[in-house]
Nucleic acid binder design. Structure first.
Lengths: 197, 197
DNA sequence: GCAAATTAATGATTTATTCAAG
DNA sequence: CTTGAATAAATCATTAATTTGC
């Protein structure tokens, strides 16, 4: 019995595909991309969305850190210019760029790059434009993978119910107090005192 | 017209409940906790899971940083010992503790604290113990909220389909190449060259 | 050859930092 | 200025490589 591994390990095919996607320049796959990649990679073995997400995150970070170290060591040794590495053309001189939040781009920018991939194949669903619908239960953060595992697996994930505050000044309706399970033991539990409503 | 706000802002009731939960010691709510809190708080106004998650994350971080600053300033000024702050009893001298991963606790530890909250009310579903089922599409990471928004909202989220690597050495089955949409313009796009399979 | 011991890689989590809305 | 949202960096923990003694 191999006792199902506790953490995902990519099969050679999965790894190859991920590396190729990375090599092509993919760094921060969005939700749809993660789902698509996961779906396709699941042909080669067990895989989840978070694995894909983590893989890109770690790979990017370690690629960058490797580059940093190389540059530092090089700079310390001699002043040889850049090494090769022209695969995913990093934004010029952005090898050590700390952050870079190009958020909320104003509706239509950089239309030149779009022309490079004129493949309007809407492979993924493109729901309505208004809010609601899928937006509700879309996210269960990364960290919850383990908690969920501990919760569903019978590993004796102890229960630390936390009483819900009940002095909300509006009509309490159906809400009074409800216990919450807690599996991570860090600083998650309630303080033992002051829980009388 | 107030033009629906683009980011969540807690209503007074929601904020009060969140603060109370925090005050009681909740720091890293897990998946079930986030869902439960979200469900109950949605009685008081529009809210999503990520809002709850972010709120705890930010609140913890900023509480800690505030404490750090206070300590630093105090230490610099005079040597007054700790300020008050005995609400969520921080692990002794853990005010600036870097990490602390109590992961994979061996099945039954710290049973004393459990006795403090002997409320085995299984309010939340407790699914089977084996894999699969809910574990599949459980997580869409935090960052995807915005992407999803840009995608579903008609803001002209440009399409940057990325060709899927196709030289996987197993039988390609139904997978050959598939375009992926990309909305974040950071370094997400594929390199323009080398996309011929 | 082969496990136990040690080290290197890397998957998974948490914390720090930054951007930007209000 | 406060704080929601997002990303990057640091860290932990487990698995795979590898070394080592037999």
């Amino acid at each position: 019995m191999i006792s199902r591994p506790r953490r995902w390990s990519p099969t050679p095919e999965q790894l190859m595909v991920l590396q190729e996607l990375y090599r092509k320049g993919l760094r921060n796959p969005n939700s749809a991309q993660v789902r698509t990649i996961t779906a396709h990679l699941s042909l080669y073995g067990k895989i989840e969305g978070k694995n894909v997400f983590y893989w890109f995150q770690n790979h990017k970070a370690r690629d960058r850190q490797k580059l940093r170290k190389a540059l530092l060591k090089q700079m310390h040794h001699r002043h040889l210019p850049f090494p090769g590495r022209q695969d995913p053309p990093p934004p010029p001189s952005a090898a050590v760029t700390p952050n870079y939040h190009p958020q909320s781009l104003p509706d239509s920018a950089s239309s030149q790059r779009h022309s490079l991939f004129s493949n309007p194949n809407t492979f993924l669903h493109q729901g309505g434009d208004e809010e609601g619908s899928d937006m509700e239960n879309w996210m269960m953060m990364r960290m919850y993978g383990r908690d969920w595992m501990l919760m569903t697996t019978a590993t004796g994930g102890m229960q630390l119910p936390t009483t819900f505050p009940c002095y909300v000044d509006t009509t309490p309706k159906t809400l009074e107090l409800f216990p919450l399970k807690s599996t991570n033991m860090k600083d998650d539990q309630s303080s033992s005192n002051d829980d009388s409503c």
